[in-house]
Computed example of a mutant assay.
Amino acid sequence: MTQQNTDERSGADLKQRLTNGLDRLSAALTDGSAGGVKVTTRHGEPLITVPLRSL
Rank of each mutant, 00 (worst) to 15 (best):
T40M: 08
A28Y: 03
R17A: 06
L52R: 13
A28G: 07
G21Q: 03
D31K: 09
R24S: 13
S33Y: 06
S10G: 01
T19S: 11
L55W: 11
S26P: 02
G44S: 12
T40L: 15
T41E: 13
L25F: 13
V50Y: 10
L55Y: 10
L25I: 15
R42Y: 10
R24L: 14
R9H: 04
L29E: 00
S26V: 11
A27P: 02
R53V: 05
T6A: 15
T49N: 10
L25H: 07
K38Y: 04
Q3V: 12
V39E: 07
D31F: 03
G35W: 01
P46C: 12
R24M: 12
L29K: 01
T6V: 10
L52K: 09
L47K: 08
R42V: 14
S26L: 12
G36R: 12
S54K: 11
D31S: 09
A34W: 01
A27L: 11
L29D: 02
G36Q: 07
E45I: 15
T40W: 08
A34G: 02
A12I: 09
T19V: 10
G35H: 04
L25A: 14
D13R: 00
A27N: 08
E45M: 15
L55K: 14
Q3F: 09
L47N: 06
G21D: 03
D23R: 10
L22N: 03
K38D: 05
D7G: 03
P51G: 08
A34T: 00
L14E: 02
M1P: 02
E45D: 14
D7H: 07
N5A: 12
G35F: 06
H43T: 08
L55G: 07
V50M: 10
H43S: 14
T30Q: 13
S54F: 06
R24P: 01
P46Q: 10
L47A: 14
S33L: 08
T19R: 05
G44L: 06
T19N: 07
N5L: 07
V37Q: 09
L18E: 08
L29N: 01
R24Y: 06
P46D: 03
D13Y: 03
V50R: 04
K15S: 02
L14N: 03
G21S: 04
Q4N: 05
K15V: 02
T2F: 06
L22F: 08
K15L: 00
R42L: 12
V50C: 05
S54I: 11
E8G: 02
T19C: 07
A27Y: 12
P51W: 03
D31Y: 11
E45H: 15
T30G: 09
L25G: 02
L29M: 10
M1G: 09
